[in-house]
Design a protein around this nucleic acid. Structure first.
Lengths: 246, 246
DNA sequence: ACAAAAGTGTTTAGTGTACACCCATGA
DNA sequence: TCATGGGTGTACACTAAACACTTTTGT
């Protein structure tokens, strides 16, 4: 095995999670102090990433980045776009940073997004000095073209969740209907009528009602919990009309 | 400008077109005769592709490949997945081929698909000795992991066309309703009721009825022609229910 | 006149949407 | 008893789906 990395190819990971105020993204602090006052000192945020290894699959590096970032494995992962235009390193800061890391100037970044289920998040990794979670609508100053990467990831996620049951990857395996509604509202920036939502959801065969109840934060009355069955979903999915969008 | 290529990064292009019998893919012949009888001689098909250039955007190479393949520009193009596992070159043939080209053993391929409108196809590029169009359900023997790449491209195309008006990229800018129906039937392997289809299509504001008529091949009665307006589409698209697939 | 694709209507079932109040529970 | 999220029903409009024959034109 050759565990050296390929110098011009990296993976960048956009890790999404559903926080109490909506969809959040995990970022790492980028700090570099310069000896010369003439050079800008760097203090902003970037996506977690690392170079691809010479003898391992691309996704191996993505999994490593995910594990090092949030301490977990086996979450939903999707490779969505590869970024690599020669002008994607635009700023003096980005140049300096790459030089300090000994990296090449033209880096191809294979970008993945991950979906982190709500209850699997290790709280200790929440906002430390070098890690942070940021609401998708309120991102901090970002290095390189990482804002563009995040926006693209979010768009791809929304598109995909439109036709596949991705939403459940953001929720605990047992969830309440109001949690599911909140996930949709957060992801798509909607407000949904609760009665219509419940009707629609409960009619899906792959949404299984459990006998269990759970008391949500701030609530007095316990709420029924449900689960999603991928088995039932795969069995019952019928090719609904595919003709003309909207 | 540095027009040398990056030795370990290439683009591969899956070019789709709508032929008279359905969706077709453009392939290039791969032939290599060996001096030794012990080595297999290569005679199969591969996707058109080339290496990424040192100082140009990735899509520049994709556009070049497309132009060299079918002699056209400005068709719909989508980067969909990057392939690069170390074991994607599995066969002796693939190894020999790469050696004969002086390429590295670990190549990252950034894959694009293109949609070629029906009437824009230069017939002279149809099946020559080194080029061929193959029905998506009847592909020949393929080199490398190119069958996998084509299947993935086709899946991504179908998914995307489900929520975006991609189907029109496969048709001439003026088309008949039966042509549009045939495009859907070919893409999704459906048979659609013609009366219901016409009703549904004619009700879309972005499908514009033209005063023109056209006599289709084998037909006697001329057919009305329609166009798709992206302007109207963008103006009128309403966020239809996004809750739960199927 | 015949062959071939173009074009047309109605009925029924199901789904989406608008809308406002009571329920169960813990504090 | 009050505050909080949990949970419920009806009416109307629209869309999807099933189904078969007539029209127009070129040969």
């Amino acid at each position: 095995m050759d565990f050296r990395s390929i110098s011009n190819i990296s993976v960048d990971c956009v890790i999404f999670s559903l926080g109490s105020d909506g969809i959040s993204v995990f970022l790492k602090k980028r700090i570099l102090h310069m000896f010369s006052d003439k050079l800008p000192s760097i203090d902003d945020w970037i996506l977690p990433g690392q170079n691809v290894l010479k003898s391992m699959p691309i996704e191996y590096s993505a999994d490593q980045v995910f594990k090092e970032s949030v301490g977990l494995e086996n979450s939903y992962k999707k490779q969505f776009t590869t970024f690599g235009n020669p002008d994607r390193i635009k700023s003096k800061k980005d140049e300096l940073w790459l030089k300090s890391k000994g990296s090449e100037a033209r880096i191809i970044s294979i970008a993945y997004y991950f979906l982190l289920p709500k209850n699997r998040l290790d709280e200790s990794i929440f906002n430390t000095a070098s890690n942070g979670w940021f609401h998708i609508d309120n991102l901090p100053e970002l290095g390189f073209d990482h804002r563009e990467i995040i926006e693209k990831a979010f768009q791809e996620l929304k598109n995909k969740a439109f036709s596949q049951p991705l939403i459940f990857e953001l929720l605990p395996s047992k969830f309440t209907l109001n949690e599911l509604q909140f996930a949709y509202e957060s992801l798509y920036g909607l407000t949904i009528d609760n009665r219509n939502f419940r009707k629609k959801v409960i009619n899906k065969p792959y949404i299984i009602s459990l006998e269990e109840k759970r008391i949500m934060e701030n609530a007095k009355k316990p709420a029924k919990v449900f689960m999603f069955s991928m088995d039932v979903y795969n069995q019952t999915k019928n090719k609904k009309s595919v003709i003309l969008p909207q």
